[in-house]
Amino acid sequence: MDDKELIRIQQKIIPEVLEMMELRYELLSYIKAHQPIGRRNLANELSLGERQVRNEIEFFNKQNFVLVERQGISLTNLGEKILAQLKEVMYHYKNLEDLIEKLRDKLGIKKVFIIPGDSQKNKTILEFMGKTAANYIISILKNHSIIAVTGGSGVAAVARNFPEVHYPNITVLSARGGIGRSHSTQANSIVSMIGNKLDAQQEVLHLPDNIDKDILKVLRETPDIKDVFCKFDDIDILIQGIGRADVMAQWRNLPQDAIKHLKDENAVAETFGHFINQSGQIVCPSSNVGINIEQYLKIPIVVAIAGGKDKANAIKATCNVRRDLILITDECAANEIINN
């Protein structure tokens, strides 16, 4: 009897098993993301009864999965290990292999990885997505590879989850300039994080993303900046995030007439400065510092990371730009894309 058949029999005889595992997976992953956390906050955030949460915490405590202290509940080393193992069990119990096939067929793309859960509600799911992406990239790295990164919380999660290895001949560079107020999720910071983890060479763009074109033209001739731009044609792997058009328009502080234009053109996604519609057509080209669309389309391997129900349309649109990208997403986004 194979594992799939065993799971099918268990689900028929003990249908509540999956429901219980989902609950405990959600609780453990949420504790990991927000530890130390109190029972009441945990119950409120997950919309569970306090008695139910108390019973589950007592079970976790008896199993030595959590540490209960005055300041709150946190995972033990054993709890961390169990959570990682439970993620793999959930993958099979929820039949995510079939979901992957359906999503890949729906989007028409090269490769898909799906993590159980909802990364918009639970930061630990985003970290699992980041680890999956990092492990995949490590598996395809070659000597002298050039890795480029955009910014964003998803790409930052990939950076945090790279193992510490020795790749001195690899170059990590920024695919775009700085944007917004969050330093930790900007491309330059992510380059530094990945470069340090891989012991690799680092090339960053010390330029704001919305710099005046005339000033950029002059600055592009300075040696450090010119060197980065020259490497854009030789990128082997791009790690990119996927943003919603409306959110990114606000984030970039676009004027109201520009926001209206995006709405009129039905823009649903933003990727490295380009706003695109559901068909993958660019409705507002990038005026920012970084790689252009021609360079993007020539990059051999593109790894995109995005999750959550709200990102479904943006993911679909981005996949229409590049049918050969590798997508790292979560169960929530996958179901939204397939069902709508």
Score class of each variant (00 low, 15 high):
Lys111Asn: 15
Leu107Glu: 07
Phe113Ile: 11
Ile115Arg: 05
Glu127Met: 13
Ile109His: 10
Met129Asp: 08
Ile100Phe: 00
Ile115Gly: 01
Leu107Ala: 12
Lys102Ser: 08
Arg104Leu: 10
Gly117Ile: 04
Ile115Glu: 10
Glu127Phe: 04
Asp118Lys: 01
Met129Gln: 15
Glu101Ile: 14
Pro116Phe: 04
Ile109Leu: 12
Lys102Pro: 00
Glu101Asp: 10
Lys106Tyr: 02
Phe128Ser: 03
Val112Ile: 15
Gly108Trp: 06
Leu126Ala: 14
Phe128Arg: 06
Phe128Val: 02
Ile125Gln: 02
Lys102Val: 01
Asn122Glu: 07
Asp105His: 14
Asp105Gly: 12
Gln120Leu: 14
Ser119Trp: 00
Glu101His: 12
Arg104Asp: 02
Ile125Lys: 10
Leu103Val: 11
Lys123Asp: 10
Leu126Asp: 01
Leu126Cys: 04
Phe128Asp: 01
Asp118Gln: 07
Leu103Met: 08
Gly108Gln: 11
Phe113His: 14
Ile125Tyr: 03
Pro116Leu: 10
Ile100Cys: 05
Val112Ala: 08
Met129Pro: 00
Ile109Glu: 09
Asn122Tyr: 04
Ile125Cys: 02
Ser119Cys: 12
Gly117Trp: 05
Phe113Cys: 04
Lys110Ala: 15
Phe113Lys: 13
Leu103Gln: 09
Asn122Asp: 09
Ile114Val: 13
Gly108Arg: 05
Leu103Phe: 05
Asp118Cys: 04
Gly108Glu: 05
Lys121Val: 05
Leu107Arg: 11
Ile114Pro: 03
Gly108Asp: 10
Ile109Asn: 12
Gln120Thr: 13
Phe113Gln: 08
Ile114Arg: 07
Gly108Thr: 06
Gly117Thr: 03
Val112Asn: 05
Gly117Lys: 08
Val112Phe: 07
Glu127Ile: 12
Pro116Ala: 08
Pro116His: 11
